[in-house]
């Protein structure tokens, strides 16, 4: 398993470089213009000058090479400099956003806290409620609990968040006034009051997203448990006099986890991709909002950096999922 992991990690490098190239070419080919959001009162000659200043005049392979150089060499140097006070980078050009003309990693750093608080928390909450719901629904198939769970999760998945979010705002912000409708990204949790304020502003977006995540994961959990509950080994285990708890939570659960692990592992990178619509509805301004404004503004360095980081996480977590398969079911071997 160790050699397999190392081999996969080494193989990940050319994979990622290839992915980077494809994303870059895709962005290059996509129609759109960083100046599309500028007022029409700016004449074409001035626009042309502005495009040149953004470096759009260079050939694509030079821009791609420059991006890789900056991503893998310059930015880590700046990171080390910031941590240890060294001066490795020596003023080298960083990856600069077209929109704000500032280093993209600074902006990404600003966005991390709210993304982790809201999207990350909702994912953890979603997983934590999805697993027991899935298990109980499967164990007591067609009970009231199961029927209710099915109803809620199907509605949770099929009603878009742009709708549930606005309903929540109307009820809890406009009518009841319990929660703020606009997320304050500058709030720092220093004492009990600010912690309560943070919880209040997180409540609605976390609820919406957690419902969505839990719906999906609980469906897979339930289906997989149902498959395994009917297997012969369950009957054998029961016949051997094991308690229901051990049978269900140890044997069946372990064997049912493979599809669930897959779904969870696929979801983790998406946490860092942010939740575009929910962030927009609640004005969370996390990574999702950053990505969508960058795409709309054709901010190629920003989109490229974000999607590439996203790609790294996808490759990494799919590797973790593959390793976990082997842990859950030792019969699975890759060597």
């Amino acid at each position: 398993m160790l050699t397999y992991s190392i081999r996969r990690l080494i193989l990940a490098i050319p994979t990622l470089l290839f992915i980077a190239l494809i994303i870059f070419l895709l962005l290059l080919l996509a129609p759109g213009d960083p100046l599309a959001n500028m007022p029409l009162t700016i004449p074409p000659e001035v626009r042309e000058k502005m495009r040149e200043a953004l470096g759009l005049g260079e050939a694509w392979y030079i821009r791609f090479g420059l991006f890789l150089w900056q991503f893998f060499i310059v930015e880590p140097q700046y990171m080390i400099d910031a941590m240890f006070g060294t001066d490795l980078a020596d003023g080298a050009q960083r990856i600069i956003s077209f929109q704000s003309r500032s280093p993209v990693f600074d902006t990404i750093g600003e966005r991390m806290p709210q993304t982790l608080w809201v999207v990350g928390m909702s994912y953890v909450v979603g997983v934590l409620i999805a697993l027991p719901i899935g298990i109980i629904s499967a164990y007591k198939q067609y009970s009231i609990f199961d029927q209710l769970g099915t109803l809620i999760s199907m509605i949770g998945f099929s009603v878009p968040t742009f709708f549930t979010g606005v309903v929540l705002i109307l009820v809890f912000s406009v009518n009841l006034g319990w929660f703020p409708s606009i997320y304050d990204t500058q709030l720092r949790v220093t004492d009990w009051d600010s912690f309560v304020a943070q919880m209040r502003q997180m409540a609605m977006p976390v609820f919406v997203l957690a419902l969505f995540n839990a719906s999906q994961i609980s469906r897979y959990m339930r289906a997989s448990m149902l498959d395994n509950l009917g297997q012969d080994y369950v009957r054998t285990a029961r016949a051997k006099g094991m308690t229901e708890k051990v049978v269900v939570l140890k044997h069946v659960l372990r064997n049912s986890m493979i599809p669930v692990i897959t779904v969870i592992a696929l979801g983790v990178p998406q946490v860092f991709g942010g939740a575009i619509i929910t962030e927009q509805v609640f004005k969370v301004n996390g990574l999702g909002q950053l990505l969508i404004t960058a795409i709309q503004g054709n901010d190629i360095p920003m989109v490229m950096t974000l999607t590439f980081m996203f790609a790294i996480l996808i490759v990494l977590f799919n590797l973790i999922a593959d390793i976990l398969y082997g842990v859950l079911d030792p019969r699975i071997r890759y060597d």
Binding site: L26, A30, I295, T307, A311, N318
Partner: peptide
């Protein structure tokens, strides 16, 4: 096949659609 899956997972949807439209 799985690396191909990783690739498609990483592609940003909106620019992809814009390119397909184009």
């Amino acid at each position: 096949l799985m690396r191909f899956t990783d690739l498609v997972l990483s592609l940003p949807l909106l620019p992809l659609l814009l390119v397909m439209m184009l």
